[in-house]
Design a protein around this nucleic acid. Structure first.
Lengths: 207, 207, 207, 207
DNA sequence: AATGAATGAGCCTTCATTCAT
DNA sequence: GATGAATGAAGGCTCATTCAT
């Protein structure tokens, strides 16, 4: 075993293998789902032998966890790059919703994977209590919410609840869109979402 | 084979067995996930022998499908009872969000199941193109949206998109709540959701 | 249990059921082979419930044994009727070969069954040492051989060996014909067989 | 999967494993019959794990097919070696009958297997239309018949029919001998068979 | 006696994981 | 370190047989 716990440094060549495995894992998990994905297919896709997978990851579960964490890490970096262009918390929040949709709809298969496979059974979470791949991503969103509330640009509701609401809304929309094989116009729905977040549903008489 | 295609009527006793199987299926699928659920456990839980399961359902897939459809049918009936108490489309819509949360949070495990297992791999949907358990439920929600739009009480956006947004928001919230083992107050979040749906996020100067 | 050991007499009605089971057993065993034949199909074909089969036969093995014995008994009676028309042992022997082919080719499926399924594994014969369905049939053939030898019409070779040779030849031919889905003309081959039995293969100079 | 389709060459070690599996397959199939034979027993007998069987053969059916083909291939080679010692078609034909009996009676279990299991249900042949293990063997016999007919040493009857008759006769005799646990002297019967093939049954007056 | 729903033992096959090379 | 052949545990499903009605 080289480095299951990532204690030792990997050589450049090894790091490339590890990365190839992470990427083919996302690819195959996304296409087949966790249980239908075969280690042999992931390994083959990454250009290594089956057994090599176990030099870099403890087992299939571990590969899933590491692949998802890696993916979210990369997506978070993308997101941070975009958000940093906005000045106010309010703009950041609206930009977040927009970019989240853009980022994740680049590959519908990955969206389905994240929306579905990610949520393993309770047994899975019990087995791996540290597996919280959304953690950093949600934390970033929550901070944006706090900023927007602080500047008074959005109404002052609990920032954690708000981050769930924002994430949940956009995420369900894109997951449904992905699961349903893109049967409706995402752009249109995206506009509706933004609209509702802005103004709410209710028509007010005074307007 | 008794009645795989449900052509013949089942005796009272048999109907009870079928129902027991459907319920233990939901229970075990919810706890373990589809792939980790064992037919033997479901059968045992229902108090019948393994083989008996196959007198009532064609196979494991069929059991999943029938269990989910049965569950949604019952939940929809509950929902319809509640909604019928409201007069306007607007009130019906807000009541829907509230009741959806109430109904499904009675059993967190079921929520996780519906939010996650339901979205099997695309292969599963290809194999069973008629499996659309949300269909009636979403249709009901969409009709409420249309009613509310027609009466002019909410802003006129596409009713299908709107139904996704409403369902998605509340469903993510309860799923996350269920997956995270109820780590936050659902009641509180429920209020926030309703609030945002009503008034939107943005603080407007003129208010 | 009514009468597994056939100790008690069966009523007319019961005897009819037993016979129906024997006949549908031959039919289904012939079509599907022993292992692919389903008790439920045999029972249904005979117009009785699955469980009823076990009132008349100890188990599936027993049903096979009884069905084959019954079939051979009936075929032997047919054969005896035909043979009794011939006067000499020699004519009886040649008639036997001819009638055997005729009798058994009435239903190719039954032939295949007798040529194949009849010969269970050694384990089967160990389990049922009394299962010798050919016994009476072969004994009858052997007696004809003895008669023909006694009258000096055929060359004096061991009658038991001879009966095997005659039976084996015609039986392989019809089995092969049945297995190959009647791909060659049985009548033609029948003539060849008779011809060889009469004159042998070898062309003799003095002829 | 190593090599189901036998595209790649197997190492010496692997070829030995494959051969061991083929041989234990013949052994166990012969003793138990196809349906009663257990993959686990075959694998154990060959000294490998159950799963290993599936590295070399697609499934149980495939193992049967490959084992029988392999067996016949080897038996045909043996036969060809013997037959090549004879000069005339007539001698070859008589030698064939003799050697067939000798070759196959080396192991009575194998005889039963070939005489019985080989003739699976029609369903099996429909599933594997290319499975004709007797093909080469019968073709070889037919060619000998043709040679003998051509040289005028045996009477001119249809060579295909003749090959069936010769094969059928000797094969039934040895199968019966095998099934009956060698209850009669095969050597004696062998002589009778040869005698009948030579001279026929009928005593002719002019002789 | 007849029924047929219920039983549960039993096996082929897959595939994550190991380990000799 | 890398390989990939070998392992063997595990489970969905069938169907002969039983037994309550």
């Amino acid at each position: 075993m080289i480095n299951n716990a990532r204690i030792k440094k990997l050589s450049i060549k090894q790091e490339k293998k590890r990365q190839a495995l992470l990427e083919s894992a996302i690819k195959v998990f996304s296409e087949k789902g966790f249980h239908e994905a075969r280690i042999s297919e992931i390994a083959h896709e990454a250009g290594v032998a089956d057994g090599t997978t176990y030099l870099y990851f403890k087992n299939k579960d571990d590969l899933l966890i590491k692949a998802v964490e890696d993916l979210f890490e990369r997506k978070l970096q993308e997101m941070e790059r975009h958000i940093s262009q906005e000045k106010t918390g309010r703009d950041k929040l609206l930009r977040f919703a927009e970019e989240h949709i853009t980022i994740f709809t680049e590959d519908p298969k990955v969206v389905r994977f994240l929306g579905v496979e990610l949520r393993q059974s309770k047994e899975f979470y019990k087995k791996y209590p540290d597996f919280k791949p959304l953690r950093h991503y949600m934390k970033f969103l929550q901070e944006i919410c706090e900023e927007a509330i602080a500047e008074g640009s959005i109404r002052a509701i609990d920032s954690k609840a708000l981050s769930y609401i924002v994430y949940g809304t956009v995420n369900f929309v894109i997951t449904e869109w992905a699961v349903q094989e893109q049967s409706f116009s995402l752009t249109e729905v995206k506009n509706y979402v933004e609209d509702i977040l802005r103004y709410g549903l209710i028509v007010r008489k005074e307007e």
